[in-house]
Design a protein around this nucleic acid. Structure first.
Lengths: 248, 248
DNA sequence: CGACTCTTTGAATTTTGTCAAACTGAGTGG
DNA sequence: CCACTCAGTTTGACAAAATTCAAAGAGTCG
């Protein structure tokens, strides 16, 4: 565990600036935000259902996911998080966690107390709007996931997930052209899509066989973006990434 | 179309007071909120995907739902709304609608401009927190829906939906004991659960046959709440209804 | 090398979807 | 008041999608 530093908070500033130009005052307020940095191994729960966390976490590097277990022991993953994301920003106004958060890879995360976040929001009302906006985008993504899981067949569901992943990763510059890291196992992909691991494997094989992607180890490359968008019925509107629209 | 009145905004005040005691100043600010009241027929779109709405809508009476169409013409319903809900509160910070909203029954809705809502939030910061919190709860419900559609079989999915419905309706007093109105058709239930209408009918028959509910016309009665909770794997934590916890 | 986890494959089974048609009940207009 | 319409519900037979169970490869790390 270590103290906050300018370098650590940079991922958050980068993320926020991707949709909104920050003022110097806002940037400085963010840089002064007290944060406890911690390194975590893969497959570790950061918070669990029922927790009343005393701090929020900012992903500095690595990847995490939120999930929930059903009474029958099945796991549903609701979201992936990458550098700059705050997976439990909801705990700013909801006292009890209704989902768990787990690291998919080794991670560095920064813990921020709600008091400091509130203070920041009070001092910089525009940042508050940006945070609120971010939670609304999270909601928009959940809506799309409901649609994906509810209405599309497994093949198209997987294609949609991969399109979304590439689009989000690209927005924060973690891509190399049409290639990027795909840090989740097929079992985790399956739990995000509401299908079994076996079936996830089969549809991945099919998408590969159709020449739409290359997937070796944890490296994903989209070979035919047009066909992928079509297969996944992917329209990035719901990600609300357009910076122009955010400037309002 | 008619002007705002104290009576119309009452449903919102009731809803907000169910999780938080309002001050007189807050109540008065709400009562002064300009609102255009409109009566709508059933099955009418209030807003559509791609719209950049110039006003948010508050459901005064009747029921609405948000939904999205896939490229293949399938419809996914993400949420139901009842009196006191603001289905497109998201448009306060997201300029483009990524979902449509439709009336399930004849409705009275009140339209409020984002400017007036912003003004209200500025003047009454605690109300802003309440609205933000409400959007976070919407997100929590989406997460549960992803889980429901992704991990549970049709029978349990339906049971879960009915448990949630009764719990929400009860919170605003639209129930009569363990009975209430169920204003959506089986086709709409199916589109919310990610199953076909035929299959929705079959699982409803089964739930009835098992003696868990009575369903005649649009009147739902839960006959065996314990077994329903178990069948639906229903834990209301995600609805964050506990008023005590909201008072923080 | 050995112990893992993760991926891949095959065969049988279950759940759910598709198609088609009949039934029901609440209006509507003659 | 009775046919008629129309949306919504119900049923049956068949097809497709996805799961389950079981086991074999592949890759990685100590």
């Amino acid at each position: 565990m270590a103290d906050s530093s300018f370098h650590d908070i940079a991922v958050l500033i980068t993320k926020l600036e991707s949709t909104l130009r920050l003022t110097d005052a806002e940037r400085h307020a963010l840089e002064r935000l007290p944060m406890q940095v911690q390194a975590l191994r893969a497959d570790q729960d950061i918070v669990r259902v029922g927790d009343q966390p005393s701090r929020s976490c900012l992903v500095l590097s690595g990847y995490t996911a939120t999930y929930k277990m059903t009474g029958e022991g099945k796991r549903q993953i609701h979201a992936w998080h990458i550098a700059g994301d705050i997976p439990d920003l909801q705990s700013l106004h909801l006292k009890v966690m209704d989902n768990s958060i787990i690291t998919l890879t080794p991670c560095r995360v920064g813990f921020i107390t709600p008091e400091h976040l509130r203070e920041l929001c009070r001092a910089q009302p525009r940042l508050m709007e940006v945070f609120w906006r971010q939670t609304l985008i999270d909601g928009a993504v959940y809506r799309e996931w409901v649609t994906n899981v509810g209405q599309r067949e497994a093949y198209n569901r997987m294609a949609h997930l991969l399109c979304e992943w590439m689009t989000r990763v690209r927005a924060v510059g973690l891509n190399e052209g049409d290639a990027c890291e795909l840090p989740m196992t097929q079992s985790e992909l399956a739990d995000a899509l509401g299908i079994t691991t076996v079936h996830a494997n089969r549809v991945l094989q099919k998408i590969r066989g159709d020449g739409l992607i290359a997937l070796t180890g944890s490296r994903l490359e989209i070979l035919d973006w047009e066909q992928m968008k079509q297969a996944g019925d992917f329209d990035p509107l719901y990600l609300h990434q357009n910076p122009a629209e955010a400037a309002a």
